[in-house]
Nucleic acid binder design. Structure first.
Length: 420
RNA sequence: GUGAGUAUAGCUCAGUUGGUUAGAGCACCAGGUUGUGGCCCUGGGGGUCGUGGGUUCAAACCCCAUUACUCACCCCA
């Protein structure tokens, strides 16, 4: 049997209601904040991602779907959206049309990781990128947006974690300090962390080894080494979040795995999705536009994983829409009138009722059962003896009462009864 | 890439020390009289027990291999 590719999943009709629900809320909230939707190609030149995300990162070094197309160009299925949005921003000179661009997207991403709960190889993110301003107000707005969306979806068990990485030069100073602190402990660290000491020392903060955590507990904190500007801006962000009643914790160990982040970073985690608890993450990336060949400019954004959010909602037992009920199910009583039956149902559809009919030539009883299963509010029984007088039976499925009405008035009658 | 676990109908699972035509619930289909649902009742379709070897008179059950999936590490949304 042919199956979907490992780590990919079909979203079946029974689940599509959840997705539409999420997407509707996402769009509504972004629209309220005047963010404009952007769509970019699923794949890009490989260099775009390796340059922006960072050659040494896990994403680039071992998780990308990279291949050569027929013209020997190295292309990659996008593992995240920021690089693509920034590329489009530069390519189309969006900065010259609006000095500030507030953009959002809802789109599939691809990373060849080992699948597990809340982690797929093709997964979906919604997110935002704000290009053109250094204002910490926007750092706060990004967090507010993400939090508001998750709350509006009904999530309760979520925590906002924030941190500031400062600018490159202050971070460099700090890294030296951290290195000095860790050197004497090097032998006590876990094997993983020893590797990180060389490769990406900040990641040692993420270690789950108890002993590592103990050692890192007393380590110097990045926050204490921030440059003045970053410190002030971080204060502003916190201040706004407090005034907006967004609960947050400062997590000095919050280090993002993509190279382009600077200053504010944040993450929102759920206690309900297993090991992959980060529903959403983001931060500021002021150097990225220049790095990708644009005029120096500012950027801040976030991305959220839709599969994880739906998982969290399910595990929190938040009610999600399943099936939307039918307005009218039309039952055919006389199989000789199939054409008239079909055309009649379409007249109702043209009046914007949600209508279903029987295509399988089933018994009246079976049709009624189907109507019930589809949660039809009304059943129209077409083609019985009333048909000779151009009439039809309309049955209200909740009250079980029914009446005979002229065919051409069926729509009005239903509308009347619905109370519309 | 590493580790652990699981593989029996569309779905959730039973299947007892290996022993005749492999089961249940849900779902699906038909019917319970002539033109009517939700409950209930009756009947039905559907599985080469992941795949390939092996042991045995006999294997869903034991052994080996293989594949797929799940969870976790890692990393991240």
């Amino acid at each position: 049997m042919l199956k979907s590719i490992y780590g990919t999943k079909d979203i079946l009709p029974k689940d599509i209601g959840k997705w539409n629900h999420v997407e509707t809320i996402v769009k509504n909230i972004f629209t309220a904040f005047n963010y404009k939707e952007i769509r970019t190609p699923l794949f890009e030149e490989t260099a775009l991602f390796s340059r922006s995300i960072g050659e040494e990162t896990d994403i680039v070094s071992k998780e990308m779907y990279t291949f050569f197309d027929r013209s020997e160009t190295s292309v990659t299925l996008r593992p995240e959206m920021t690089a693509s949005v920034v590329r489009a921003f530069i390519e189309h000179s969006l900065a010259t049309q609006f000095s500030l661009n507030k953009l959002f997207y809802i789109a599939p991403m691809f990373r060849q990781e080992r699948p597990q709960a809340g982690r797929l190889r093709q997964f979906h993110q919604f997110g935002a990128e704000v290009l053109g301003s250094a204002s910490p107000v926007l750092d706060a707005e990004i967090i507010i947006l993400a939090f508001t969306i998750l709350k509006s979806l009904g999530l309760k068990d979520i925590t906002v974690k924030i941190n500031s990485l400062g600018i490159a030069s202050s971070r460099k100073t700090y890294l030296e300090v951290l290195k000095k602190y860790l050197e004497p402990h090097l032998n006590e660290l876990s094997e993983e962390s020893k590797k990180r000491f060389e490769k990406n020392i900040l990641r040692i903060f993420d270690s789950k080894s108890e002993n590592d955590i103990l050692i890192m507990h007393d380590a110097p904190k990045l926050i204490d080494y921030l440059d003045e500007a970053s410190k002030d801006e971080f204060e502003t962000v916190q201040n706004i979040l407090q005034k907006e009643h967004i609960p947050f914790v400062i997590d000095s160990s919050l280090v993002r795995g993509l190279d382009y982040y600077s200053k504010t970073t944040f993450e929102i985690v759920s206690g309900k999705v297993g090991a992959q608890s980060a529903l959403c993450g983001g931060g500021r990336y002021d150097g990225l536009i220049e790095l990708l060949g644009g005029a120096p400019n500012y950027g801040v954004g976030f991305a959220a994983g839709i599969e994880r959010i739906i998982l969290a909602l399910q595990n929190e037992e938040t009610a999600l829409p399943e099936i939307t009920p039918l307005d009218v199910y039309v039952v055919l009583l006389n199989k000789d009138l199939l054409n008239e039956y079909y055309l009649f149902a379409n007249t109702l559809r043209k009046k914007h009722f949600k209508v279903e009919i029987d295509y399988l030539s089933r018994s009246v009883k079976a049709q009624m059962r189907e109507a019930n299963k589809l949660q039809a509010k009304y059943v129209a029984l077409f083609g019985g003896e009333e048909f000779s007088e151009n009439k039809i039976v309309i049955k209200n499925m909740t009250t079980s009462s029914q009446q005979v009405v002229p065919l051409e008035k069926a729509g009005e009658e239903i509308l009347l009864s619905v109370g519309g």
